[in-house]
Simulated assay, not measured.
Amino acid sequence: MDYIVNTHRLQMEPSGSDVVLRILDENAGDRIEPLDIGPNAHRQIGTHLSIPAKYYTKMREENPDLLSTNVNSWFERSDSQRMLRVLDGRARAFLSNRYLRMDHLQIAEAVLPIISEIKDARFESCQITEDRMYIKVVNPRLQQEVVPGDIVQAGLIISNSEVGLGSVNIQPLIYRLVCSNGMVVNDAVTRRNHIGRINSAEENFQLYSAETLAADDHAFLLKVQDTVRAAVDEANFSRVVGMMQEAANAKMNTANVPEVVRLASRDFGITDEEHPGVLQHLIEGKDLTLYGLANAVTRYSQDVESYDRATDLESIGYNILSMPAKRWNSINQMAA
């Protein structure tokens, strides 16, 4: 269920060791049952009210009464209209009233018939997480060899968020057969941000799911279908394979391999907790090149529990692979 509400009709209350969210009518009664609040909605409430994230979390964990007092005071003062996305009695998103609901089902209904047209297409991985849906598909009929014995296949990844954490994305995917790694190609993407018309609480309290399939989204869904057809493009695939072949010849400074990995990790958003795992896979792969480092990152993605973070690492692997030669040389020089 989705609701458009005025913030001065919202009230946070302590409940046990946590808090709940109430939606009040003009007589201060509950319009619906009090809602549990998911982690994403908590983050969005804090952001909307300009409460620093660390302080918000500290209040929630240590003093829910204080959090409720803070939030309710700013709710009353902000007097804005927001969209609440609710599932199973829990607020999972707290969004702008212009948020355009593009749900996973809509995207799946648009893309799955097109994917079925790709002969021998293989669903390599699919997942719905708290934040996103992912569909990863490989076309085994389109493949090339990077170096002898190292074959990659073309594919695509389709992703969507229903809770305000990203637009609809369609991106090429490179699948490496040697170790079942996926690499998301970041520089070719069809994107649709979730921004639509302003919804008013005076118009409706509850937004019905049928409205999600608005006519003005039809053109975009057709574009999504066209992009899926074109995503596994032979010319683009060959271009990326060419980059891989160049990276396979970009040698690493072996005087201090751990420092090369640390510097590259820092530059590309790999955390201090993650980079030792990348280093391990680099050493095990015995390929001390830029290509080997990119593959170590995508291989490490398989060790990560979070599917969202694993997909991020597949994108980071491509970012490393495609870094300019000047930047790669600089990393090697700094590690010396």
Rank of each mutant, 00 (worst) to 15 (best):
M83N: 05
P64D: 04
S80F: 04
D65N: 15
D65Y: 11
R101H: 12
L87C: 05
Y99S: 07
E62G: 14
F94G: 00
R90H: 00
L66P: 10
L87F: 08
Q81G: 08
P64C: 05
D103P: 07
R77Y: 07
W74M: 14
S73D: 11
T69C: 10
E76Q: 11
G89Y: 03
L84H: 03
S68D: 08
V86F: 01
R101N: 11
D103V: 11
N72C: 08
E61F: 07
R101L: 08
N97H: 09
W74N: 11
N70M: 06
L100R: 13
R98M: 11
E61M: 10
R92N: 10
D88V: 00
M83Q: 11
L100V: 06
G89F: 02
S68W: 04
T69F: 14
E76A: 07
E62N: 15
L87D: 15
L95S: 04
V71E: 00
S78E: 05
P64V: 03
L66E: 15
Q106M: 15
L95V: 05
R77T: 04
D103G: 08
A91G: 03
S96F: 01
M83K: 05
W74R: 15
S80Q: 15
T69M: 12
V71N: 01
L67W: 03
R90Q: 12
F75P: 02
L95T: 02
F75L: 02
D65W: 12
L67V: 08
E62I: 03
R98N: 15
L87K: 04
N97K: 09
W74A: 12
S80T: 15
H104W: 02
S68C: 14
A91N: 08
T69R: 05
E61K: 14
R90S: 07
N72E: 08
M83T: 08
D103R: 10
Q106H: 10
H104A: 10
R98D: 10
A93K: 01
R101G: 06
R77P: 02
T69G: 14
L84Y: 01
E62C: 10
E76D: 11
D65I: 10
H104R: 06
E61V: 08
H104G: 13
V86D: 08
